[in-house]
Write a protein that binds this DNA or RNA. Structure first.
Lengths: 192, 192
DNA sequence: GTTAGCATGTAAGGAGTTACATGATTTT
DNA sequence: AAAATCATGTAACTCCTTACATGCTAAC
């Protein structure tokens, strides 16, 4: 139960292109796989976004490496500016990084950020969810009597889902903290 | 993890007004409580929607019953046409009723529909979620190797969440089926 | 040879948000 | 008397989807 995108397409595209040059069609497929959960990104969003990023100098076209017979596809790669923008977006720790979709995209690329940032984002989201829980539970106490059976059941299920996500976040936070001492590398961190 | 609204505001407003006349501010509060989970409905959406419904004859203004000192508030109630539209929307069983937000709103007002409809909506959503699961799991088998740790963890958590919702739906379906034989009334069903 | 999937785009529009504007009423 | 919250609204804008348009390429 969530929503909202925005700069998100840009961040997702930049993140994916950090794994290597790709054309639009493939970007869409990987994006839908990565964040799927119902929502599929339409071409009507992706291609205009790519054009905009091209104009903004965040990405550039590349000559395709395996050409010959194929119809030429437009393969993109990140520029220096694009890399800088990616770092900037990934180091946001405020509300823009907590909200559902925003969080998912950032989380998927956590391997390319510092643990310090990861922890702040995870904790920020957890705090936010906990606030939501207490607020809803307070409201429920005051109004539960008049609420109908189905609405109440929806609430209950919703609360449980959020509690589950809080536990998930707590486990992740613990794992991050644990790996700090042992010096375990959580993921590859290429220089480019 | 979900999205999309639309006719949803209308359906939600109609449903709430079936519980009695209300003014805009209160509608917003009850709506946010009922479907909360992050999203709050803004006045910028609600008030124009109310005006539109008023023009469309789905709702009408009422004289406030407890006036005197208060500043006059605009209290709405459903019309005959509004009631008919509510029934029409609630008896949809296709994709419009399955998608996340759409489903939540319908579910909250299940007490005002027939069990037949309830079952079809619940089963429709369950089928849809299961399709999603198998598709994603197939994809994962083909691509898991190259997926990074965090993206994989996000997937795993997502799959678990959906599996959990499928179980929830199955329990609800069973409960509906059970109450059919025993003749238990699931909720009040006022004539108006 | 036809269907399914690859590949790129544009135009119009839907659904809602943010920010702005305004003022009354209740609580501290 | 200040702060919170009740109460109603408008204008501009964002972000994304749907539907349309086009053609190639692989599989059956």
């Amino acid at each position: 139960m969530a929503r909202r995108r925005g700069e998100n397409i840009e961040l997702a595209v930049l993140g994916l292109l950090h794994e290597g040059p790709m054309h639009g069609y493939e970007l869409r497929k990987r994006l839908n796989l990565m964040l799927g959960w119902g929502r599929v990104l339409s071409y009507g969003s992706l291609y205009p976004a790519l054009k905009k990023m091209l104009r903004g100098g965040l990405i550039e076209e590349t000559a395709e490496t395996t050409p010959v017979t194929r119809r030429p596809r437009i393969v993109y790669q990140v520029t220096e500016a694009g890399h800088a923008e990616f770092e900037r977006l990934m180091s946001e720790v405020g509300p823009t990084a907590w909200e559902d979709d925003n969080f998912d995209i950032r989380f998927a690329f956590f391997g390319r950020t510092d643990m310090e940032i990861r922890l702040r984002v995870l904790e920020g989201r957890r705090t936010r969810l906990q606030e939501r829980l207490t607020r809803v539970q307070q409201e429920l106490e005051r109004t539960q009597a008049e609420v109908n059976r189905y609405a109440a059941e929806l609430q209950r299920h919703g609360v449980e889902s959020v509690e589950r996500e809080v536990r998930w976040l707590s486990d992740l936070i613990q794992a991050e903290r644990g790996s700090a001492d042992t010096g375990i590398q959580t993921d590859q961190h290429p220089s480019s």
